[in-house]
């Protein structure tokens, strides 16, 4: 018996939106093969990692990651510049956490000003995220979309309960859009359909099937992503072909494994390395499952995952 490489060609292809503008714009997706299966097909674009920053001081981040930004995190503009210039970020994700009613309740106008200031300070593409408060996000993301008009940002996240106004804003100001559903391939598909039925081009969409941290449901996210990819490629399901987002950092940097000190959990070893590894392994697993864009926090985790990506392509 002689060996023949068992290649599989796919009928479908992942869509490939770009975001940002000018020479720093980036493109994701576009592959017609499973993640990193370059022996099966073409993988034209590498996955991209965006650094997460916030509009308020990240007092809810554990020290391991908070201390990395202690000189800049009191100000979103300084923080964004630091990520771009010092950390060589390919993209930045600005989370407007301060607009959450429990986190300062900043107004949509305030948020819009932060967006404008950050955009004026950086050249790399920007992802603009709400605070994950269904009603407030609808108002905040509308104002943010307008403030970012012409910058070709990614806006998010549109969910079943608030997508209409956010889709309309992204449409009006020519942004890309994240459609987020909760760990269910059918819900992801349904939301993509609802959004495209509003006249929003599917080539401008990203799917966020909801991330989970290692140890906290990552197997669900992993399998949902894998199934979305298989549907897009093998069944050529056009509604499942937008690239996938993994919003890694916010799920990782709150679980006990990234927070508990070595004094509290001696059998878990050093807290800083543990947290970094937690984020890096979570992110790597998401890439293997099919994520095209990751949002992460710790510089050392980002650096390591970038090395993994270099090895994988």
């Amino acid at each position: 018996m002689s060996y023949v490489i068992p290649k599989e060609t796919c009928s479908g292809k992942v869509l490939s939106p770009d975001f940002g503008k000018g020479s720093k714009a980036v493109k994701i997706g576009g592959e017609n093969a499973l993640p990193f299966h370059s022996f099966d097909g073409a993988i034209p674009n590498k996955p991209v990692i965006a650094y997460e920053i916030q509009d308020i001081f990240p007092d809810d981040w554990p020290d391991t990651v908070k201390n990395q930004f202690s000189s800049v995190s009191d100000n979103a503009v300084k923080w964004a510049e630091y990520c771009q210039n010092e950390l060589k970020a390919q993209a930045i994700a600005l989370r407007l956490s301060g607009t959450h009613p429990d986190r300062g309740d900043r107004s949509p106008q305030d948020a819009a000003k932060t967006v404008k200031d950050v955009l004026a300070a950086i050249e790399v593409p920007l992802i603009i995220l709400g605070s994950n408060h269904m009603e407030k996000d609808a108002a905040v993301l509308v104002a943010a979309s307008e403030a970012a008009s012409g910058y070709n940002c990614i806006i998010g996240k549109a969910q079943e309960g608030n997508y209409k106004t956010i889709v309309a804003a992204a449409l009006a100001h020519n942004h890309k859009l994240i459609a987020m559903s909760e760990l269910d391939i059918n819900l992801a598909k349904q939301l993509n359909i609802l959004i495209t039925q509003m006249g929003f081009d599917k080539e401008r969409l990203l799917t966020d099937p909801m991330c989970s941290a290692l140890g906290y449901g990552i197997e669900y996210t992993y399998s949902v992503m894998e199934r979305i990819r298989l549907a897009a490629l093998m069944q050529n399901d056009a509604t499942m072909q937008p690239p996938i987002l993994g919003d890694v950092g916010m799920y990782v940097w709150k679980v006990k494994e990234t927070v508990a000190t070595e004094a509290e959990m001696s059998e878990w070893g050093a807290v800083a390395e543990r947290g970094i590894t937690w984020e890096a392994v979570t992110a790597t697993s998401m890439l293997i499952a099919g994520a095209n864009l990751l949002i992460m926090r710790h510089p050392k985790a980002v650096e390591t995952v970038n090395k993994v990506v270099e090895e994988l392509v």
Binding site: G269, E273, V281, S285
Partner: peptide
């Protein structure tokens, strides 16, 4: 096999090998 690394690797193995 640092303890912190083991914890992450044991966990990803457990998660991937969970019965869906």
């Amino acid at each position: 096999i640092e303890k912190w690394k083991n914890l992450a690797l044991f966990t990803i193995r457990q998660n991937i090998y969970t019965d869906p």
